[in-house]
Design a protein around this nucleic acid. Structure first.
Length: 449
DNA sequence: AATGTCATCAACCGCGAAAGT
DNA sequence: GACTTTCGCGGTTGATGACAT
């Protein structure tokens, strides 16, 4: 049985909130609270909104002490560092930044910080290629040297921080610092967060990050930081529960090895599931950062370089097959499952796009009919009239204009829409063109080639 | 001025987890 | 234990505006 809808979709308003709606919601929640039931809330207030929408509006916008924009350098560092360490767990990251919402941070990361990071990475690569000194490379980017594990990255990050901040002791692989080394607020926050993450997901990891040495205990006890205090108390009580006097091991990083070995009294432990996931993520991040995906594999696109050329677009036609639909219907991610051989791609291309070749300005251009609908069947009329032909390479341009260049997913939904129409056509025993009526993208006359 | 490109961000959607029955 | 409802999260989208050509 499918999930029951949270509200009557036909009877709820969507889109931007008006100031009246905001005022109603704010006033009610400030007076009575949410009542522990967001779904029932809009009815009580008399708002024609979905409960989820109310919740989102309150949490991301109306709630008191929300900050918008103007991220500080320190906040940038925290976000970057935590993202590198724990990935896209925005709610956890947001918890470290008072007044910031997960949505805000997510947007900020996706639109700015990620690019900043990638920019630094590229600069670093350029430096390396141009034969800059090792010192230059070291200075160029902390990300460059980060690898292998969240913890190692974190420590390397701290190492880099120490170069900038003499108060922060240099990390020495052979002599790992005894706690407490003086952490700056960012590092402290990161450690706290990692600890909380580990605590919530893996008791073993907590053991490896909790106070072990007398110095560390003293540091916690003397700390005025309520978070540290609380953390200390909880880890102490955890010890009591487990009946362990000194359960903590040390983290031993072997500088010659890519692996992080966790040692405890019981010997070498396998890395936790959480940590392994972290590593897997790091590998992905590393790949992303090193731009390995810049040249799409056949039928596959990198997030930052989709539609790189006609050839790639054409090969991607294989997504239009029914098999691809079946695969993609249950997954939001790109993979190679929906990729079929090139011949099939060609056939689909010919069959669906009805391509032909023409010469324009001395340049041979492949023409096709562009489909400009999204998966809801909504037509984008930005470019002109129904059924127009468009240079296939222009599909990319249209796609750019209406849906943003880097959104490969949108391209997929466009394709899926075509699949849907094609199926309809099969079911109704009609031609694809008939089924597509009203759904072809529009190309402005002015844009004619 | 028209068109094209890109950035931004509020809001939506679907999913899994948690809580309730 | 099975099923339903609600919450919270992260991914994604669409509208809009700034800037470039």
């Amino acid at each position: 049985m499918g999930r029951a809808p949270c509200c009557d979709k036909t009877n709820v308003k969507k889109g931007p909130w008006s100031s009246e709606e905001d005022a109603k919601l704010k006033e009610y929640i400030e007076k009575y609270g949410t009542g522990g039931n967001w779904i029932a809330l809009p009815q009580k207030i008399g708002l024609k909104r979905c409960g989820k929408s109310c919740r989102l509006r309150w949490l991301n916008y109306l709630r008191p002490n929300i900050k918008h924009g103007g991220f500080s350098e320190e906040e940038d560092n925290i976000i970057c560092s935590l993202y590198i360490s724990i990935g896209s767990r925005w709610s956890i990251i947001a918890a470290q930044l008072p007044g910031r919402t997960d949505n805000d941070i997510k947007n900020y990361w996706n639109t700015r910080l990620k690019k900043k990071l990638l920019g630094r990475r590229k600069q670093s690569q350029a430096n390396r290629l141009s034969g800059n000194s090792s010192q230059d490379q070291k200075e160029s980017n902390g990300i460059e040297t980060l690898s292998n594990s969240a913890i190692e990255r974190l420590q390397l990050h701290m190492q880099l921080q120490s170069l900038e901040n003499p108060n922060f002791s240099q990390y020495d692989h052979n002599n790992p610092p005894m706690w407490p080394c003086k952490l700056n607020p960012i590092q402290e926050k990161m450690m706290q967060t990692l600890q909380l993450v580990n605590e919530s997901s893996n008791p073993l990891m907590l053991q490896n990050f909790s106070p072990a040495t007398p110095q560390k205990v003293e540091y916690y006890e003397q700390s005025n930081n309520p978070v540290l205090q609380q953390e200390y108390n909880s880890s102490m009580s955890s010890m009591m529960i487990n009946g362990m006097e000194n359960p903590m091991g040390n983290i031993n990083i072997n500088p010659d090895s890519s692996s992080l070995v966790l040692e405890s009294d019981g010997g070498i432990q396998q890395p936790s599931m959480e940590l392994q996931q972290c590593w897997a993520f790091q590998a992905e991040m590393e790949e992303l950062l090193s731009n390995k995906g810049a040249t799409p594999l056949e039928g596959q696109m990198s997030e930052f370089d989709c539609f790189k050329d006609m050839h790639a677009v054409k090969n991607n036609i294989s997504w239009w097959s029914n098999e691809f639909e079946a695969n993609s219907a249950s997954s939001n991610s790109w993979d190679s499952n929906g990729i079929h051989d090139h011949k099939e791609s060609e056939m689909k291309f010919q069959e669906i796009v009805q391509g032909r070749r023409m010469v324009r300005g001395g340049e041979e251009t492949e023409m096709g009919i562009f489909l400009g609908t999204n998966e809801k069947g909504k037509v984008d009329n930005h470019y002109g009239t129904e059924g127009s032909e468009v240079p296939v390479k222009n599909v990319r341009t249209i796609h750019n204009h209406t849906t943003q260049f880097s959104r490969s997913c949108k391209w997929r939904t466009i394709n899926l829409s075509l699949i849907t129409r094609k199926k309809e056509a099969q079911t109704l025993n009609m031609s694809l063109n008939e089924a597509m009526k009203g759904c072809w993208g529009r190309i402005k006359q002015k844009n004619s080639y």
